[in-house]
Design a protein around this nucleic acid. Structure first.
Length: 926
DNA sequence: CGATCCCGCCACATT
DNA sequence: AATGTGGCGGGATCG
């Protein structure tokens, strides 16, 4: 079907043109230098193709492929031939292949390394089919999806202690993409300080701990820079006239603009670094984010953003430049979407609908300063400084904001730790000013430029249409509504109206759940950002009701828990739009924010809420593809499981609680879920919470259904949810809070391994897998340093390779049954070794996931080792891989990361029966 | 047909 | 010079 067709195209798509280098490039990227010889010689056209994609030989006529039509025949490589044959045999296969290749890495599943062809040949069967469905269409290769995969590999809130380094090459090969694409992602992430560059091919993963601060900083900076403008634009109509100015730009040097936030790199190296163009993507990303943050409506249309951004830097706006800018904005937007910070919407303007993006991330940041207050101070294990990136920037703005702000981040350093000024003081932002630079002039000039831009825009608009603000739908209008907190509500929004598209907005809750959860008791790690402290979560939205015990997490992931598994979503397709997300809903967390914080352990929840899975499942399917974000549904029903009450003490019990969940993906979207209250039945209050979130703006969220599932929250009060990354695959963890409040981390004693009796279910979407840990697991960071470390490691595991769907189990014994078993057995020995035995990953790609090895159950392996092979802190590589391996591989296998990579494919294939079961649910995707 | 945005060439930076 | 980075825009896809 269509799919296949698409696939073909994709395959074919190889560009005729570029080839020369292209090939090389591809190789590099994709295959990884490591593996292959450096560019292989195959150079000729055909060859490369094969390389890239995997060899699909044929090309479409469509493009001028050099080969011309029948490529198939060419014998490129032996394997190629095989493939060709195969493909010839069935188109499907071909897709499959392709797909596999793409995903393989990701999933880690398959045997990738082995010669594909062989396998393929053989295979073909049914399993494959599924792949086909998925066809590797362009979407599958989208940056947004890629970003999700990328994010899924790393914990959203890594323990501070560990520094995860990211090797671009490694990631690129794992994800099966060219390195260039990774740069796109990383650059944007870097702009938000989720990562920082450490060295040449190395980036340090910081996670979202600092995101709130970063955003806050950007917001502040943005207000200075763009506040007026945005206002202007937004209102433009009326006044347009240029209130601002007549003068136009003086064109500032671009560079000047330079990022508000510097990256630390610069520090060190400094200056030079900035110089180049480089950073443009980063800068652009920050600016783009600023626009959202200063926008009342939180909606920014691409064209406006492009204009503003262009203008700043340059005055000329030529069309081509505009176009290019827009392209870049799409790139950035895709990444931000994957992060759950924005989502696409359409604005109806006078003229018509325009593509736009709405900010669904946190809006208000609690104090203006940085601090998140919230939980106890103590909580952070690490000083922010350590955290790296995060912290350190300062804003210079003085009272007036105007000028300068400049924050410097040192991300990189952070890893290293060093310098940075930290200023995080709570409330006094200004302090630092000196450090900062001020450029008032620049600022002015920029403003001018902007004004000019605005003017243009206005003119344009005017011309085009007359006025009209009104024309627009006003639906949007409520600016404030959308996000409560937004800064200023200005009247002007009218311009942007949001359509009520289905997709349109949802309320999002994105808060990171984690924070919340953490807050609860633990807080140990990172909460800082915690904006939540305030009552609202990050978003500002209250995701949770205060009163209510539960929180919803939108984050992406989901969770599930033992018990029934439900399924979750399937999907996957939706990459961008829908996003994946995260969402998790869950409840578990549900702790009222405040309350939560305070008490950690407590259960907030009501026991009652059970959830059901089934329903959701159905829904999910529906949802799946929708672009919309999806959501998940939360079943209202209670689940059968016994209850979740937490049993105190015993970790095991906790596990039980888990049962309740499921989740889905969707992160950002999550909100929607919330939004949907309607859907929600009433079951429980919990549901209600959801509702709250919703955004006013969006009247109809598309997918409401989704959320419900999450609703399940009821379950456990005690758990903490740790949100993974937004990405698809991320795993979520729930920890029970009860036990140790502070400890999220695994306690050493308790869990030696991570064995938690939990189950992870993969969401359909792929992405997210939640993991739940029994209370036992938790370890307090504090107590054990090492432990924490280890813990972290364990926790963090990301699945890099996993296929989206794959479910993972963790836990020792318990694993098998989702339900809870108490498995906690584990030994107390080292804290950390978690053995995550995760099962592996899915088997073939086919949709089902399989778990394999029951291993999981097995025993814990010590991760530690894995992780740190060497004494060194874990490098990312080591860590990650290790984990993965752990997951996928059997413990024994774990070994070096590298190997791991290579292997990744192979190993995991098997699924244990158990897994399968799980899979079932998960499979749904297709 | 316009919106998206993948792909990868190629320039510049760094090693 | 080789390799890392990443700007940039052609042109394929999508809707």
């Amino acid at each position: 079907m269509e799919v296949s067709v698409l696939a073909l195209r994709d395959l074919a798509s190889g560009r005729p043109g570029r080839r020369g280098r292209a090939e090389a490039a591809q190789k590099e990227n994709i295959f990884d230098r490591s593996r292959m010889a450096p560019k292989t010689p195959i150079k000729n056209e055909p060859v490369d193709l094969s390389k890239q994609k995997g060899c699909t030989p044929e090309r479409n006529p469509i493009t001028p492929v050099k080969l011309t039509d029948r490529p198939q025949s060419d014998p490129w490589t032996p394997t190629a031939n095989l493939k060709i044959l195969v493909s010839a045999a069935s188109p499907d296969m071909r897709d499959r292949e392709k797909k596999k290749e793409l995903f393989r890495p990701i999933e880690n599943s398959e045997q990738s390394d082995t010669p594909d062809s062989l396998q393929y040949d053989m295979v073909d069967d049914s399993t494959v089919d599924e792949f086909e469905k998925q066809r590797p269409s362009r979407k599958q290769k989208s940056l947004g999806l890629l970003c999700q995969k990328f994010l899924a590999r790393y914990p959203s809130y890594p323990l501070s202690t560990e520094k995860t380094t990211i090797s671009l090459d490694e990631v690129a090969s794992i994800l099966g993409v060219e390195r260039r694409r990774i740069y796109d992602i990383v650059n944007v992430l870097e702009s938000l300080h989720l990562v920082s560059r450490v060295a040449k091919n190395q980036y340090c993963w910081h996670g979202r701990h600092n995101l709130s601060q970063t955003l806050k900083t950007l917001q502040e900076a943005g207000e200075l820079q763009y506040g007026e403008l945005m206002t202007f634009f937004q209102q433009k109509e009326q006044d347009l006239e240029y209130k601002c100015g007549e003068r136009k730009k003086e064109t500032l040097p671009d560079t000047q603009d330079r990022p508000l936030l510097d990256f630390s790199e610069s520090d060190c190296t400094s200056a030079s670094a900035n110089s180049r163009k480089d950073k443009s993507l980063r800068i652009m990303s920050q600016k783009f984010v600023m626009l959202f943050l200063v926008s009342k409506t939180k909606i920014v249309t691409l064209d406006i953003a492009a204009k503003i951004l262009i203008e700043e830097t340059q005055d000329t706006v030529d069309h081509s430049k505009f176009k290019t800018k827009v392209r870049r904005l799409y790139d950035i937007a895709n990444v931000l979407t994957s992060l759950g910070l924005i989502k696409k919407v359409h604005v109806t303007e006078e003229r018509g609908r325009k593509p736009a993006f709405k900010w669904i991330g946190p809006v208000e940041f609690p104090g203006k300063t940085n601090e998140p207050r919230g939980h106890s101070p103590t909580s952070d294990p690490l000083p922010r400084s350590q955290r790296g990136v995060c912290a350190p920037y300062q804003i210079c703005a003085t009272g007036k904001q105007r000028f300068t702000r400049h924050a410097s981040f040192n991300g990189a350093q952070s890893c290293e730790g060093t310098r940075r000024k930290v200023s995080s003081e709570p409330n006094s932002p200004r302090q630092e000013r000196q450090a900062c630079i001020v450029n008032s002039d620049e600022y002015c000039s920029k403003m001018i430029n902007l004004a000019a831009v605005c003017r243009q825009k206005i003119e344009e608009d005017t011309r085009n249409k007359a006025c009209a603000t009104e024309t627009v739908l006003n639906s949007v209008r409520n600016p404030s509504a959308t996000s409560p907190p937004s800064h200023l509500p200005l009247p002007g929004d009218s311009d942007f109206c949001v359509n009520p598209l289905p997709q349109a907005v949802f309320p999002v809750v994105q808060a990171d759940v984690q924070n919340l959860s953490l807050l609860k008791g633990v807080s140990s790690r990172a909460l800082h950002p915690s904006t939540p402290a305030a009552s609202k979560t990050e978003n500002g939205k209250p995701t949770l009701l205060p009163s209510q015990p539960f929180l919803c997490f939108p984050s992406s992931s989901l969770f599930m828990l033992c018990g029934g598994l439900q399924e979750d979503n399937s999907r996957e397709t939706m990459p961008t739009t829908g996003e994946v997300g995260n969402r998790s809903a869950e409840a578990q967390a549900a702790v009222p924010p405040a309350a939560c914080q305070k008490r950690s352990s407590h259960k907030c929840t009501s026991p009652s809420a059970p959830v059901d899975n089934e329903e959701p499942a159905a829904k999910k399917q529906t949802m799946e593809q929708s672009d919309v974000p999806l959501s998940l549904v939360v079943p209202k029903k209670p689940f059968e499981s016994p209850k979740a009450e937490s049993t105190p003490g015993s970790g095991c019990t906790s596990a039980v609680h888990l049962e309740a969940f499921h989740l889905d993906l969707a992160s950002p979207a999550a909100p929607e879920a919330a939004g949907k209250e309607s859907t929600k039945p009433s079951d429980s209050q919990e549901q209600e919470k959801w509702s709250q979130n919703k955004d006013p703006d969006e009247p109809s969220p598309g997918k409401e259904h989704i959320s419900k599932e999450n609703a399940s929250q009821p379950f456990l009060p005690q758990y903490l949810y740790v949100q993974p990354t937004a990405g698809l695959s991320s795993f979520n963890f729930l920890f029970s809070a009860n036990q140790a409040p502070g400890a999220i981390s695994l306690a050493a004693s308790q869990l030696p391994s991570l064995s938690v009796p939990c189950v992870m279910v993969p969401s359909a979407a792929l992405a997210s897998f939640p993991v739940v840990c029994s209370p036992t697991v938790t370890s307090p960071l504090s107590p054990v340093p090492d432990g924490s470390f280890s813990a972290a490691a364990s926790m963090n595991f990301s699945m890099s390779g996993l296929a989206p769907t794959t479910p993972v189990f963790i836990g020792t014994t318990a694993v098998v049954t989702p339900k809870v078993s108490p498995a906690p057995s584990v030994d107390p020995q080292q804290p950390a070794h978690p053995a995550l035995h995760l099962s592996p990953v899915l088997a073939r790609s086919c949709g089902a996931v399989k778990l394999d090895s029951p291993v999981c159950v097995g025993h814990p392996v010590t991760l530690l080792k894995l992780q740190q092979p060497s004494s060194a802190p874990l490098t990312p590589k080591s860590i990650r891989p290790a984990r993965h391996e752990a997951f996928f591989k059997t413990p024994g296998s774990l070994g070096d990361p590298i190997a791991w990579k290579k292997n990744e494919g192979n190993q995991t294939r098997n699924a244990s029966s158990v897994q399968r079961r799980l899979e079932i649910s998960s499979t749904s995707p297709d």
